[in-house]
Nucleic acid binder design. Structure first.
Lengths: 207, 207
DNA sequence: GTCTATATCTGGATAGAC
DNA sequence: GTCTATCCAGATATAGAC
């Protein structure tokens, strides 16, 4: 973001290196399973040196949690805003799902770390992450609300529950997703299809 | 429930007390966030005494993880098997969802602990839990496979992905479910409805 | 079956040299 | 900006008294 970072071709040092290493370790081993010594080693420095950049372990975690949510939020919004004006409602829904999953599964450790460790961090750290989370939730709620207002989503569907179902199902893909067996885009389309149309056979050709 | 437990009005002692206390703490604070001292205190004993009942912290965790899966498996199967013979396919699906959610949300800490800490435990502990997990996955796969074979579930639906979507969405309810705002049964019906029918408005009465 | 006491290790965090 | 050295709290686990 700043001018001084534009020419930095080796980001695995200093502040950024610590954050990258920490995010990767956190999503592998959980909050309690990662020591500052482990983070330091992964970043190629010694544990004591971390305190030049961060005041505490929780300061690192706080920054990682925020970056994780911002990443999905940005990517989901970008995917939706890139659509032409005459896009059908179900394609808007599909785009949001694709943006969320892409950020989660292929973009980086920050988003994954957030999903994995949010429930384990100390209350103060969790609270610090809440504003960013709520902002993303509001974005999704507004999007779903628009879709229901235009009649694309059935009246009977509770939007608050739908958002929770959606985020829950999408985030859970993290536990088993394997990029070797089809990319995040194909998965997103498949999931979106299930959410939109359901699984029930409506053609009446039962055996 | 069992004969030997009928006269036990104070279950929070000994082995069972340790397991109950540990399960409750694990689902609140995660694997790394719970010490043997904390477990001992919650169970009303001292840390050293735990080693009379268990060889290690991981031995406790292993037992809790297995019990958690067995609980959902049993409850889902019981809900399905309690149905009359002429039950419609969608009602079978609904019953399985209800059983899973009920065990997860209202039954106990073991199931919740499993969902929350499975990703954080040492590899050896995780591996020990795999057979029980696979058995439940097979049960669900067979159930869904039957439903698709009878024509109730559309041909195009990938059952392995559907199972993952389903379990992911259901388990995620743990993060926000509040029994004060409607029970697990109502939630289960709502979720099952979304899975079965989708969210799209099919009536064509768009504005 | 539970206690106390303790050995041993690892964690986060600090101080000061370079 | 990173190092070494260290403090101290808290962790698992053990040994032996009761």
């Amino acid at each position: 973001m700043s001018v001084t970072k534009t020419n930095a071709e080796k980001p695995e040092v200093g502040r950024a290196g610590i954050l990258n290493a920490a995010a990767s370790l956190f999503c592998q081993h959980g909050y309690g399973g990662v020591s500052l010594r482990a983070i330091a080693e992964a970043a190629g420095i010694k544990a004591g040196s971390i305190y030049y950049h961060f005041a505490s372990k929780d300061a690192i975690v706080t920054e990682i949690l925020d970056a994780g949510i911002l990443s999905v939020h940005d990517e989901a919004r970008a995917a939706v805003e890139a659509l032409p004006n005459d896009t059908t409602p179900d394609a808007i829904f599909r785009a949001a799902v694709r943006g969320h999953l892409h950020a989660l599964l292929e973009h980086g450790d920050y988003t994954s770390a957030n999903v994995r460790i949010f429930g384990q961090v100390p209350p103060a750290v969790r609270d610090a992450n809440l504003p960013v989370r709520k902002a993303y939730e509001k974005y999704l709620d507004d999007l779903l609300s628009d879709l229901q207002a235009t009649g694309a989503i059935r009246e009977g569907v509770s939007l608050s529950r739908l958002r929770l179902l959606l985020i829950g199902a999408l985030n859970a893909t993290l536990e088993w997703f394997d990029p070797e067996q089809g990319g995040a885009e194909a998965l997103a389309d498949d999931y979106a299809d299930t959410f939109l149309n359901g699984i029930l056979n409506k053609t009446g050709d039962n055996t």
